[in-house]
Design a protein around this nucleic acid. Structure first.
Lengths: 151, 151
DNA sequence: GATTTTATGTCAGCCATATTGACATATTGC
DNA sequence: GCAATATGTCAATATGGCTGACATAAAATC
């Protein structure tokens, strides 16, 4: 059990190190990464939804988000039905950055799967899913969901 | 692959949330947790070894460590052979705190294993091991190490 | 024995990211 | 018209990183 605790610590540190280094050269930090990532995954997301996803305050988000908007990474457009909303999306520049960062992290994960051996990816995914809060787990498809019976 | 990235993010956030809350009541943060944890796991560790393990600067460690010493959580004793060293160990108070924090995290991991199902723990461990830096991986026993042949 | 290297500590300042609390503005919905 | 909602902003504070510079004691080496 203690081993699992340490594994998580060292793995997560390695997992974030490379993006952090790339971001630092652009004057960004990990908080910017999260915004770019989640806006990229959820284009047109509302500010309030992003806040709920990240679980930070709007004041914390503001600094990061306004910098991203100012520097041409994130676009804000009024909601079509509710004009109070500022729906967020990435510019091409940000999309490219998001791809780069995700690609690096994906490569690390792919190497980890390869090193860990066949059939380990499922256990990895299922345990991480079990680890997170119930509320967050709902965002993921149930790995035990009954599928259309294959003929 | 993107799913794995998000799983790591949400799982790690949940994994650290409960200790953070307990520590906050004592006026400590996550950095204190790391020191207490690793000193507890490695009693008699040198300051320089702890720095290498945490990969932070001595100035960063100093604030946290001196607070822990001041408040009676960590003991410093001169090295028996090299008196320049300050070998670190936990007081009973800190040992109790470390146990509490580790217990809560262990419980969360145990629940995750139970929810994930039999046979998932091995994949979880092996992938995390593959994810971390080579240097850190050396701290862990090789899961493929040949064992004494069972008769 | 003198000098250099090592282990550790400390002061000062800076940066990133989080917090709480208060208040402002525009828009929507009753 | 008015309350609620979505968002923004100002100010202060805490945490935990960083760099650079300097200090001290002990060990190791010439």
């Amino acid at each position: 059990m203690r081993q699992a605790i340490e594994l998580l610590y060292f793995a997560y540190r390695a997992f974030t190190a490379e993006p952090d280094a790339i971001l630092a050269e652009l004057g960004f930090g990990r908080a910017h990464h999260r915004v770019i990532y989640f806006v990229g995954r959820n284009p047109g997301i509302m500010v309030s939804e992003l806040l709920a996803l990240l679980r930070i305050t709007k004041q914390s988000l503001a600094r990061v988000l306004s910098q991203l908007v100012r520097e041409g990474y994130v676009l804000q457009s009024p909601g079509p039905r509710d004009r109070r909303q500022r729906l967020l999306s990435l510019t091409p520049k940000a999309t490219a950055l998001e791809r780069l960062l995700t690609e690096r992290q994906s490569q690390r994960i792919a190497r980890a799967f390869a090193r860990a051996g066949d059939g380990t990816a499922d256990g990895f995914r299922r345990v991480l899913l079990g680890l997170m809060d119930d509320e967050d787990r709902r965002r993921f498809p149930d790995p035990d969901a009954p599928r259309r019976a294959p003929r």
